[in-house]
Computed example of a mutant assay.
Amino acid sequence: MKSTRTLWRTVGGAALLATLLLIVGLVYAVADVINPKPAEWARPPDTPPAEQTKSSIDIVALGDSLTVGTGDVTGKGYVQRVREKLAALTKKQVNVIGNYAVNGNRTDGLLAALQNKSGIPYGIEKADVVLFTMGGNDLFAIGQDVMNSQSEQLDPAMVRVRLPEPLKRLEQIMAKLAELNPRAKIVYVGVYNPFYDIPDMRPATVYVQEWNDEAFRIASRYPNMAVVPTIDLFQLNIGKYMYSDHFHPNGEGYERIADRVVQALE
């Protein structure tokens, strides 16, 4: 009899304990639903990324006469216009810490400068943004080189034959820039046909676009690189956006290029 009472007490105590545990668990569950704790992944990082904390943006520019700004009577070109537009957009101080562009520069000259252990690679390593133009002098110097001696007119087919060599150097240039600074945003400004309004030169536009298409394919290998097209800006507006030398943009043309560069950087 005594053993039976002891057994029932034990069973009753266990049942009471289980009931209490169930009630406590239910209370915690309801509290968790009403006031959930933030998940680990939703917590903001202790320190923001470096690009958010940096109070300035440093630009390095390189390439040919388009990056020099030839044809713009204000001297700004597209580089200084990009600086001004980025400063207005980001509310940060934007500096052009180096413009290494050279009038008449071609792919072989830029590639040699990048491979030389001089100030240019050092400047690129320090930049947040790298802007460059290249290819116009290669393409249109090629055109002068393949003039048909009988008609004294450009043979677009021969321009196409000559494209691979400078395109290979452009590929090496882009690879070198990405190697020198994998964190910077690198923007290549595409080539246009400045002679589109001359009927005999219009067919060359097909090969200019072929150059740009290959530049897009090369740039797509690098997550920090973009190509900004310009061929359409000048195709139907050469009289409006070209300088009197019929090769370089005027101030308004550089303004349009700068708009596109900033859009790519936003």
Rank of each mutant, 00 (worst) to 15 (best):
V73S: 13
T74A: 05
T74G: 07
T74V: 02
G75S: 06
K76M: 12
G77Q: 13
Y78H: 05
Y78D: 02
Q80M: 08
V82H: 03
R83S: 11
R83H: 08
A87P: 06
A87G: 09
A87R: 04
A88M: 09
K91P: 00
K91C: 04
K91A: 10
K92A: 05
Q93N: 12
Q93S: 12
V94W: 03
N95C: 01
V96I: 05
V96L: 01
I97K: 04
I97V: 12
N99V: 08
Y100G: 02
Y100A: 06
Y100R: 03
A101I: 04
A101L: 07
V102A: 10
N103E: 15
G104S: 12
R106C: 06
D108F: 01
D108I: 08
D108P: 01
D108N: 11
G109F: 04
G109V: 09
G109E: 03
L111I: 08
A113H: 10
A113K: 11
A113L: 09
L114F: 01
Q115R: 14
S118K: 13
G119E: 09
G119I: 06
I120K: 06
P121Q: 05
G123M: 10
I124D: 07
D128V: 04
V130A: 02
V130P: 01
L131W: 04
F132G: 04
F132S: 10
T133E: 03
M134P: 01
M134Y: 08
M134K: 11
G135F: 07
N137F: 04
N137T: 08
D138G: 00
D138L: 00
L139I: 09
L139E: 07
A141L: 14
Q144A: 14
D145M: 10
D145T: 13
V146P: 05
M147S: 13
Q150P: 08
Q150L: 14
Q153F: 07
Q153T: 14
Q153H: 12
L154D: 00
A157F: 12
M158N: 14
M158E: 15
V159A: 10
R160M: 15
R160E: 15
R160W: 14
V161H: 14
R162E: 14
R162V: 07
L163S: 10
K168Q: 15
E171I: 02
Q172R: 12
Q172G: 11
M174Y: 01
